[in-house]
Simulated scan of single mutants.
Amino acid sequence: METVKSLNKWANRHTSYPVDLLRIALGAFLFFKGVSFINGSQEVADVFSPVANFTGGMFVLTYVASAHIMGGIMIAVGLLTRWAIWAQLPILIGAVVVAALGYASPSSLLLAIVTMIVCVFFLFYGSGKHSADYYFKMQQ
Rank of each mutant, 00 (worst) to 15 (best):
P50V: 05
P50Q: 01
V51N: 03
V51S: 08
A52G: 01
N53D: 14
N53S: 14
T55E: 13
G56W: 15
G57D: 08
M58K: 12
F59T: 13
V60M: 07
T62C: 09
T62V: 13
T62G: 14
T62W: 14
Y63S: 12
V64I: 15
V64Q: 05
A65W: 00
A65K: 03
A67R: 00
H68T: 08
H68Y: 15
H68N: 15
I69T: 09
M70L: 15
G72Y: 06
M74T: 08
I75V: 15
I75M: 13
V77F: 07
L79N: 03
T81I: 10
T81H: 06
R82Q: 13
W83I: 14
A84L: 03
A84Q: 02
I85P: 00
I85A: 01
W86T: 10
W86P: 01
A87I: 10
L89S: 06
L89K: 03
L89V: 14
L89E: 06
P90C: 07
I91V: 15
I91D: 00
L92F: 11
L92N: 03
I93Y: 09
I93N: 07
G94S: 08
A95L: 02
V97H: 03
V97Q: 05
V98C: 04
V98K: 02
V98M: 11
A100C: 03
L101R: 12
L101E: 12
G102H: 01
Y103M: 13
Y103K: 13
Y103S: 13
Y103D: 09
A104V: 06
A104D: 15
S105Y: 08
S105C: 01
S105R: 10
S105E: 15
S107V: 10
L109T: 10
L109F: 14
L109P: 02
L110T: 11
L110M: 12
L111Q: 11
L111E: 13
A112W: 02
A112Q: 06
A112P: 03
I113Q: 07
I113N: 02
I113D: 04
I113S: 11
